[in-house]
Design a protein around this nucleic acid. Structure first.
Length: 529
RNA sequence: GGGUCUAUGGCGCAGCCAGGUAGCGCACCGGACUCUUAAUCCGGUUGUCGAGGGUUCGAAUCCCUCUAGACCCGCCA
């Protein structure tokens, strides 16, 4: 490693960007503007993984710019895709729209132009909150304006060859029989039901017949309409197996990341780009999908969808960016419970970046600093901001449920964790508080209170209700336990269970004074009677 | 049928994609502090890095084979 030259900022992103440039130079292509693309699904609720595609592409754009190239990120919404199933929590009234392009389905909330834009805007909103800049394009406009017509024409005239190759590459026979183009039926507005059988090359029209089709395990009735779709302006779209290639060629895309679930499609598209459209396919990187945590349900009603909107209630944008930039391979199960460690990992990177933590291994140091820079979208702060351990905040939030922000701020200052309050710290406390409230629902264990313990508890209540300064509450509690012949250990445990719903906690004497004697007396009182 | 990922102390994981002293959390053990609890702090133990081969001065890391598990594709997007 010592002999190695560090590329860019030493991360996988830099390495990828440099491979990309090298490839472009070998191909002899113009590198005055290198476009990268990210596809945005518009048919379901976008989760962190959907963001990942765009965020990582943006990282590559940053790396390219850092290396002195001009670059642009195209965020392309697949809003001509048909709706296949209704996402959890959406009204059944969408049923009648199954099979229609999502951009033609009304938005049930009325806030967006269409169902598709509703979904897209959630994703775009997530990107904006992370500070990702992009050029937005939509499938609907792309087809309406005929931007892909040359590519469509070429593909359709070679459909036989393509159909055979698809079978060869991925074993799918369908396109030997049908054209890889799905018209939207002019009569019932649905995709997939209209099967394209013939391409009228001279007129650039596709002849189709609308009939029953199976979508998502359900039979969708076709309307029987027979018609022709004009590839220059009518609605309809290429099948995914060939659509990327058309887009790459039309928009001059040089890089696109993809999830392993569409590996096969990418394989076919690469071939189509290279051999049919004569456009050397973009450089790729494949990433693993994020999976829901197995067995651990987060929220059944929400279907465990980890959306950026929800994530940002608990963690900073940087925590999402860290998750997505720290590595590209081997992503596994993901859930909100990863937030605390990501938050603290970010703090650690920050300390490394500002030289507060020493790292011996030069390569690791460079990489960590680089990662920090990417997480800050290459514009890191000039000096180290005040930081607080997220886990510490979680602990404090579990204890202080009311007046959280001022009380925790005070504690933090007592602990010398911070020097002064600030809007940033307040925000962190708020996020940790949200997290603590949402996920640290302690098990409501039945507390074993026998008569002996009851007696001791009532003594404690009496003590707490006295309106006097208590000098050494810790010891008083200890003496009560001792006096009633209870193991102090067990008595403390009961107190923790009553007050905090855990079996342990901070030193109890000062802690009770902290959260208020009356408050505690009330809580304990419930167990005495 | 095709493909991808994962395998690292008791448990959960990081490190791997740019080879250079095997790390973290929990658990565990010891100590400090506390009039004896808990918490806290300090220190410590825990590993044939799934198996086998290869490359290398050097492999958890790169290559090949194998084993086990998870997932994806073979509807559609």
């Amino acid at each position: 490693m010592s002999e190695q030259n560090v590329i860019g900022k030493g991360t996988w992103i830099d390495k990828l960007a440099s491979e990309l440039i090298e490839r472009e130079e070998q191909l002899g292509r113009d590198t005055s503007l290198i476009r990268v693309e990210s596809g945005l699904g518009a048919s379901g609720i976008p989760h962190i993984g959907s963001l990942g595609d765009a965020v990582r592409a943006y990282g590559v754009k940053l790396a390219l710019e850092n290396m002195g190239y001009k670059s642009e990120l195209i965020a392309y919404s697949d809003d001509l895709d048909g709706l296949r199933k209704i996402p959890a929590g959406f009204p059944d009234s969408l049923e009648e729209h199954i099979g229609k392009p999502v951009s033609l389905i009304p938005d049930h909330t009325g806030e967006h132009e269409s169902y598709g834009m509703n979904m897209s805007s959630r994703l775009l909103d997530g990107l904006e909150k992370l500070g990702i800049e992009y050029t937005f394009k939509r499938a609907r406009d792309t087809y309406k304006e005929g931007l892909l017509q040359e590519q469509i024409h070429t593909i359709l005239t070679q459909s036989e060859r393509i159909g055979a190759k698809i079978e060869d590459l991925v074993g799918q026979e369908k396109y030997q029989k049908f054209l890889p183009y799905f018209p939207v039926c002019a009569q019932c507005n649905r995709l997939y039901v209209a099967e394209a059988t013939e391409y009228l090359s001279d007129e650039r029209k596709v002849r189709y017949k609308c009939h029953d089709a199976e979508i998502g395990g359900k039979i969708i009735k076709g309307c029987g309409h027979e018609g022709e779709a004009d590839i220059k302006k009518d609605l309809g779209k290429l099948a995914w197996k060939v659509e990327f290639a058309a887009r790459w060629s039309a928009f001059d895309i040089r890089f696109e990341a993809y999830g392993k679930d569409i590996m096969d499609s990418v394989k076919v598209n690469d071939w189509v780009a290279d051999d049919v459209l004569n456009f050397p396919h973009p450089h790729h990187i494949k990433y693993e999908m994020f999976l829901d945590k197995g067995g651990k349900k987060i929220s059944k009603s929400l279907g465990n969808v980890v959306t950026s909107q929800t994530w940002l209630k608990f963690g900073t944008p940087e925590s999402i960016l860290l998750l997505l930039y720290k590595r590209i391979t081997g992503a596994r199960e993901l859930g909100f419970e990863d937030i605390p460690s990501l938050m603290d990992e970010y703090n650690e990177l920050e300390k490394i970046f500002f030289g507060k933590i020493k790292i011996d291994n030069e390569a690791k140091l460079v990489k960590s600093k680089g990662l920090y820079e990417y997480v800050n979208l290459l514009t890191p702060p000039k000096q180290i901001p005040a930081q607080v351990s997220y886990r510490l905040l979680l602990e404090l939030c579990k204890i202080f449920k009311e007046d959280r922000v001022p009380r925790i701020n005070k504690k933090l200052i007592d602990y010398h964790a911070i020097k002064e309050t600030s809007a940033e710290i307040d925000k962190l406390i708020e996020m940790a508080g949200n997290f603590a409230d949402e996920f640290d629902i302690s098990d409501e264990i039945d507390i074993d209170v026998d008569s002996k313990v009851k007696g001791a508890l009532s003594k404690l209540v009496i003590l707490l209700e006295k309106d006097e300064e208590i000098e050494d509450l810790q010891n008083e509690i200890y003496q009560i336990a001792k006096g009633d012949d209870i193991e102090p250990k067990d008595f403390f445990k009961v107190l923790y269970q009553i007050i905090l719903s855990t079996t342990r906690g901070p030193k109890i004497g000062p802690f009770i004074l902290d959260i208020g004697k009356k408050n505690v007396a009330e809580k304990i009182g419930k167990y005495v009677n």
